[in-house]
Design a protein around this nucleic acid. Structure first.
Lengths: 151, 151
DNA sequence: ATCCGTGCAAAGTATTTGCAACCTA
DNA sequence: TAGGTTGCAAATACTTTGCACGGAT
């Protein structure tokens, strides 16, 4: 990991009255290293455990909660019974959307908001002020679509 | 409950090799009676239990899974650790969207798809064929917005 | 030195499963 | 009658919590 991440984590933690610890650093490291992936708590636990066998999974849960509160990670819920996490990209105001392949389980990302006009409509029609949204698309990725067409 | 529902449930079950039972009927009854609400498994269990104290919660879980497989109910995941269910409306091809108030927890529904052009874009850009989507909006409902503005 | 953070085990919560008795077709 | 369905309890799976020890500031 590079020092700027290190420093910003330390600072962000301090700002909010949290302490900087090796374990918190390790969790962020893993998320940086595997960015683009969507790791579950246990994935992260196992990766760190291979280097630091003494770490407990409760620490991972607690750390991810801290990082989430600091706005450093997003939580992704695929309705498969466990939570997955990913780094928040710099300058990301709204969460991006996810393309989940029903066949192979791969998760891709779509940039862009694309929901602004929809949210305006909702405000006018439903009097509901949208602050955030979660949008997941289920379907077939290119690879799986080709395979299913070949049959 | 009216007889047409009764008959269609019986038929739908038979079509797929399931048997028609009082318990399955009860679960659908509750969903019809409370349509517009988004009940958790335990909510449904408690409602039925007040009339039929012998019913077990495992039956509710199993029945909801059957109704889901038959396409009679939607599953709604609010990331609060439990699943909620609602009747599928007749002629509903895509699930509607949900407006979830972060303050009072109320869940409203938005009709309409409104994502077709977005899904076309995704197909062209990402080569991902969308089959379904889940869209949740978080924000403030009219009531809670007025209260927070008054402060 | 203070107090937060950690590891461990136990507890909690939602859901699933094994099984004998039961009921539908 | 045959085989799916039910209620019960035990088992699972993921997550949270209590507590004494350890580490950061």
């Amino acid at each position: 990991m590079d020092q700027s991440d290190d420093l910003s984590l330390k600072e962000r933690l301090k700002e909010c009255g949290y302490k900087f610890t090796g374990q918190r650093n390790d969790v962020l490291d893993v998320l940086v290293k595997y960015s683009g992936r969507h790791l579950s708590t246990e994935d992260i636990y196992n990766i760190i455990k291979s280097k630091h066998p003494k770490i407990g999974i409760a620490t991972i849960y607690r750390t991810l909660m801290v990082l989430y509160r600091l706005g450093l990670v997003n939580k992704l819920d695929l309705d498969d019974g466990l939570s997955r996490y990913e780094l928040v990209k710099p300058n990301e105001d709204h969460q991006h959307h996810h393309l989940i392949c029903s066949n192979c389980g791969n998760i891709a990302e779509v940039e862009g908001d694309l929901l602004e006009s929809l949210e305006k409509q909702i405000f006018l029609k439903n009097k509901f002020l949208v602050k955030d949204h979660h949008l997941k698309f289920y379907g077939l990725c290119e690879k799986c679509r080709q395979i299913s067409e070949d049959k």
